[in-house]
């Protein structure tokens, strides 16, 4: 049975930093949100936790593209993660969790498996 999911408003457009990431707190844990205004779609959400160090830092990595795919580089040990799939480019066995993300007016909505304070029914 598929777990029930919710779209949660996590922050507003003003909180985003173009070409970079911010971190938000969700019931799923910390999530990194990236805003790449020169791509379509421009929003990406992946786990904020760096699987190699266990530290919550991925939102503070440098973004860009490699071979046309959107990526972020971990600020600690510099592995690259595909923002669309969460796959680590340097290690096939490692993937970080990705989250569907939407822009709704001025709000950024994130789909998580658990309920959150400002839940909006999907």
């Amino acid at each position: 049975m598929k777990a029930r999911t919710f779209w949660n408003a996590v922050c507003s457009v003003e909180d985003l930093v173009p070409e970079s990431g911010i971190a938000v707190w969700t019931e799923d844990g910390p999530v990194a949100l990236f805003y790449l205004p020169h791509r379509l779609p421009a929003l990406f959400a992946i786990s904020h936790t760096d699987p190699f160090s266990g530290a919550n830092v991925l939102a503070r990595g440098i973004t860009g593209d490699l071979g046309g795919e959107p990526i972020v580089a971990s600020p600690l040990y510099k592995q690259h993660f595909n923002l669309k799939t969460g796959a680590c480019l340097e290690d096939d066995s490692v993937t970080v969790k990705t989250y569907p993300v939407l822009l709704d007016g001025n709000r950024i909505l994130l789909e998580t498996t658990e309920n959150q304070r400002e839940a909006v029914a999907a």
Partner: peptide, 22 residues
């Protein structure tokens, strides 16, 4: 400055040195 923020390594972005636990 807005244009330069995304260019910086994390240490430059936050003007401090990131340690292993973030």
């Amino acid at each position: 400055a807005t244009d330069h923020v995304p260019l910086q390594d994390t240490n430059d972005t936050f003007m401090a040195n990131m340690q292993k636990n973030g």
